[in-house]
Design a protein around this nucleic acid. Structure first.
Lengths: 215, 215
DNA sequence: TAGATTGTTAATCGATTAACAATC
DNA sequence: TAGATTGTTAATCGATTAACAATC
């Protein structure tokens, strides 16, 4: 029952639905129609219904959607109902910040950091140990790791990515300023977070807004 | 000569062109055709030419594009030729990590952090001082700030965003887990970085890939 | 000049929105 | 039942790709 080819655009929106439904739940809202949700989220009701119907009929005519139920279904779709073990490669500022992030509440648990800097190896971040990158292959043999987060300079990113792939990693969350496409086997997935590119987009938008464009 | 309505999709790709052109320059490549670049970037040559021609004819028939020139033009389009002063609101792990990031090379300079925690106020990160959030209005009156980076809990994000807007900030780089749309005047732009949503997308892609979908 | 490659128009493809019958 | 709202088909819109004339 694997889903048929869901478009990238739909996937990108799912976590946002999940977030809004969580907020609604916190506010004690039990049910919501696509119309109401569309107003809050500033999207069309049509889009919401189309998006959700890619995965199944979660609503009920004349009623709308049950907030808790819909949220749980989206969690399942996104895989948030299973625990994911993560490691972070690179215990610099960003790697450390991510280790301190509370991704656990969505089922993502960081179990180790890795670095090459001897000064850092042996330390911990929130009780998570920083290990030597040399110990990575052995660690991966002995621990189930679902996701590897890459927080290192672009010069090293490709080699380490290769090392990770060689040792069975199937998902890479990439913060390095480079694309890993070139070396990727088909069964390995990558999600890029290019912060400086995000900042450049902001810069562009600011500039064009100042020049008096309407949107 | 403000550009006509460039689509969001094009803007999203510009920083990636910029990065590839920088890499090419570092490798000593002087000229490149849309065909070659398309192979490296894994996009169509058509798309590259269409994208660039939104802004002008940067190439030359029979020759291709001059790498250095094209890169500089894209820098101008993105506003990277002007210095941008930034502040960071929230000097927690993420805020501190961003203050340590080398955005300067693209013209983005962090000149202050702000926090409410008295233990942090007065400290510095890479010589950048952490000030009290109470001093924010005065600071904004006395210093030109182009971009405010929001690194704080969602509960506080909207109030602080309002404070920033009231004090003249026109661009917000938002890392808080919330949308700021609701309170936004038309001349204020926001770029969101929702890390946990990025992670959820990775989780989804991993899951669907494991279930044996092709892409 | 001949060859290469752009700039740009036209064709295709995909995603979004609108509309409405189905149904709770 | 009547009213509301979904699920889904059809229409529209926009973005991507293909094709080729222009031109260096």
């Amino acid at each position: 029952m694997s889903q048929r080819k869901i478009s990238r655009a739909v996937i990108k929106r799912l976590p946002r639905y999940y977030r809004y439904l969580g907020d609604l739940l916190d506010m004690g809202v039990e049910r919501i129609s696509s119309g109401e949700l569309s107003q809050q989220m500033r999207v069309t009701a049509s889009q919401i219904r189309q998006d959700l119907n890619n995965f199944g009929g979660f609503g009920q005519q004349g009623y709308g959607y049950n907030v808790r139920y819909l949220r749980e279904e989206i969690a399942k779709i996104l895989g948030l109902n299973t625990e994911h073990n993560m490691i972070i490669i690179g215990a610099g500022h960003l790697g450390t910040a991510l280790a301190n992030y509370n991704f656990e509440k969505n089922g993502f648990k960081t179990i180790s950091l890795f670095d090459i800097n001897p000064d850092l190896i042996g330390r911990t971040v929130r009780d998570i140990p920083i290990r030597s990158i040399d110990d990575l292959p052995e660690f991966l043999r002995e621990n189930p790791v679902d996701i590897a987060t890459l927080c290192l300079p672009k010069a090293k990113a490709k080699d380490i990515a290769q090392l990770l792939i060689d040792n069975g990693i199937k998902a890479i969350w990439n913060f390095a300023h480079t694309d890993l496409n070139l070396i990727l086997p088909k069964d390995v997935v990558v999600e890029n977070v290019h912060l400086s590119e995000s900042l450049m987009r902001l810069s562009y938008t600011l500039k064009s807004r100042q020049q008096g464009e309407e949107e």
